[in-house]
Design a binder for these strands. Structure first.
Lengths: 104, 104
DNA sequence: TTCTTACGTAAGCATTCGCTTACACTCCAA
DNA sequence: TTGGAGTGTAAGCGAATGCTTACGTAAGAA
């Protein structure tokens, strides 16, 4: 079931959508207009994927549908990855911090 | 370029492989024998995907090829996700911790 | 040298994916 | 009530994916 979410974020276009709707709630048209090289329908289908992965929430406002990121599901996905990768939040945290320190 | 890694971990079979080689270094045959419902060749191809995503390291030992997880690349992937999802490690950490606390 | 083990890789196939075009529906304003 | 704006969805298509079988190759063992 977490599989669907992982497949969803594996697509760069969908990650960009997630980034947009994490900054502010947006109607589908506005989201689509951010992608000049692809049709509105394609974006609508991407939104469908994100919706079925429960990574975005949809709210109706008259004619429009406003999307925003589902922070809770994102957090759940993150926890899943944490536990999967290293069997513990702590070990991962130190690994990430070490890598970040090395970067500086 | 992080795309390849994300696509790689989107597959449940490959995640299971990563889990195995994060516990201990293993020859390809041993890895394959963990999957009864799929051929050795399929696992070899999965290993190829993980290798080109730089998520595993390969070491030759005579006839065999020993695989282990590449912790450094995993950490890089994790940092990428952290920054992508919430634009900062701190906000993510608190969100994850809050979700975990809610779970208890 | 000649097997055998341990592997990667090529070819082919069914399924999935991301996209486009075309269409259907729901609001709301005129 | 008619029309346009905002949106999801069906159909179809080319490309990518995951799998199988078959083959190729390197490293010991016999």
């Amino acid at each position: 079931m977490m599989d669907i979410a992982l497949k969803a974020i594996a697509d760069p276009r969908r990650r960009e959508i997630l980034r947009l709707v994490s900054l502010s709630e947006l109607p589908a048209t506005d989201i689509a207009s951010h992608f000049s090289d692809v049709s509105r329908s394609a974006i609508s289908q991407h939104l469908g994927v994100l919706r079925s992965a429960n990574l975005v929430r949809e709210r109706r406002d008259g004619n429009r549908r406003l999307y925003r990121v589902n922070d809770e599901e994102m957090a759940r996905l993150r926890i899943f990855l944490d536990q999967y990768w290293s069997g513990g939040l702590d070990r991962l945290k130190t690994a990430a911090e070490a890598a970040e320190k090395r970067k500086k």
